[in-house]
Simulated assay, not measured.
Amino acid sequence: MSPVPTDPLWVERNGTRTYTGFSGRGARVDIGPASAGAVFTPGELLKIALAACAGMSSDLKFSRVLGDDYAVTIRVDGPKHATEDRYPELHETFEIDLSSLDEDTRAKTLLLAQRSIDRACTVGNTLREGAAVPPVEYVQPRAAQA
Rank of each mutant, 00 (worst) to 15 (best):
M1P: 02
M1W: 06
S2G: 11
V4P: 00
V4Q: 12
P8Q: 13
R13N: 12
N14G: 05
T16Q: 14
T18G: 01
Y19R: 02
T20E: 12
G21A: 15
F22S: 06
S23T: 15
G24D: 06
R25P: 00
R25H: 11
R25G: 04
R28A: 14
R28L: 11
V29S: 09
G32M: 07
G32Y: 06
G32A: 06
A34P: 03
A36N: 09
A36K: 02
G37H: 10
G37I: 08
G37W: 04
A38R: 15
V39H: 08
F40Y: 15
P42T: 08
E44C: 05
L46C: 07
L46S: 03
I48A: 14
I48C: 07
A49T: 04
A52G: 13
A52H: 12
A52L: 08
C53K: 08
G55Q: 05
M56E: 06
S57F: 00
S57Y: 00
L60I: 12
L60K: 14
K61W: 04
F62N: 00
S63N: 08
S63V: 07
S63P: 04
R64S: 13
L66Q: 08
L66M: 08
L66G: 06
G67W: 10
D68N: 15
Y70N: 02
Y70D: 01
A71E: 15
I74Q: 06
R75G: 10
V76H: 00
D77I: 00
P79I: 04
A82H: 11
T83H: 11
E84F: 03
E84D: 11
D85M: 11
E89C: 03
E89S: 09
E89I: 00
H91P: 00
E92Q: 13
E92I: 13
T93H: 11
F94A: 05
F94G: 01
F94M: 01
E95S: 05
E95T: 01
E95Q: 10
I96Y: 02
I96W: 03
I96L: 10
D97F: 09
S99K: 10
S100V: 11
S100H: 07
L101Y: 08
D104K: 13
D104A: 15
A107H: 10
K108C: 04
L110I: 09
L111P: 01
L112E: 14
L112R: 14
L112T: 02
A113W: 03
A113C: 08
S116Q: 07
I117W: 00
I117V: 12
D118K: 01
D118C: 02
R119N: 10
C121I: 00
C121Q: 03
T122D: 06
T122C: 05
G124T: 00
N125W: 01
N125M: 07
N125A: 11
T126I: 07
R128T: 05
E129Y: 04
G130E: 10
A131T: 09
A132H: 09
V133R: 09
V133F: 13
P134M: 13
P135V: 12
V136L: 15
E137R: 14
Y138M: 11
V139Y: 13
Q140R: 15
P141K: 03
P141G: 01
R142E: 12
A144G: 03
A146W: 08
